[in-house]
Design a protein around this nucleic acid. Sequence first.
DNA 1: GTTGAGCGTT
Length: 296
Amino acid sequence: MTRFQMENNGEQIKKFVFGKQNTTEPAEKLEIVIPELLLPGYSFYTWPSAPILAWFLWERRLSLINKRVLELGAGTALPGILAAKCGAHVTLSDCTTLPKTLQHIQRCCRLNGLAPGKDIEVIGLTWGLFLDQIFQLGPVDLILGSDIFYDPSVFEEILVTVSFLLEANPQAKFLFAYQERSADWCIETLLKKWNLSCNKPSQAMSSPGAATAFARGVQKLFIGNLPWTVSTKELQGYFSKFGHVQSSNVIYDKTTGLSRGYGFIVFSTRDGYANATNKPYHTLEGRLLDVQPAAS
DNA sequence: GTTGAGCGTT
């Protein structure tokens, strides 16, 4: 990815180029133009996390096709615009009380050939509040946040909103990039409070930001005593009766390829986990399963 | 070609 910059009537235009520089193949290259305003306020500037998150998405662009994407605190919306350009159905959001920011997001869209209301949606969405707009949102597959953890006083409001959205969309993930501003900042306890879990930062990412994904309510079960013939798919099939299964795994011996007779189930929701653990016993192919909370 | 306590993988 490279970037170019030019001045224009107090406006600074940045051009971000993804993919191969000298290719004529349009699918291999994408240019996004972001106008930045010399105004006070954080939302008119493209912070370092944005190109990182955008690049992360670009690397996975084929998986974005027809995905429903919501960007929170979009600002100049580089990641969301990229997702839209790669075939996702994108809604960009920023604080309802910042009309200038929302206008600017629309301008960013238009400069990239995306008509707001037609090719892309721009809405006001305030973190931590449950106003009409959050209920009017359709289903979402991916929630994006670029550098939205910049002020600890609003961390909980962000996570309340994210938690609500992930509860409504159990298959969805929240992907964000952040800039480390203080070693003291921590969202660990808030994640627990709002039943969120976070996987390790992607190995692919490096400073200054890191992309990290959240999933709602990861509740992991260890499943023992599995019949040797039960596969990951069958395990998932059985436990899906209790709720949406986020992941299912049967562990196989590396050398023999045979099942080791145990596996793991992760539910997307607390309900699924509760339904499964409340059942006094589980059987699969006539065998009594050993179902217990996973150790780690 | 086996087995029946055990907490892995991307």
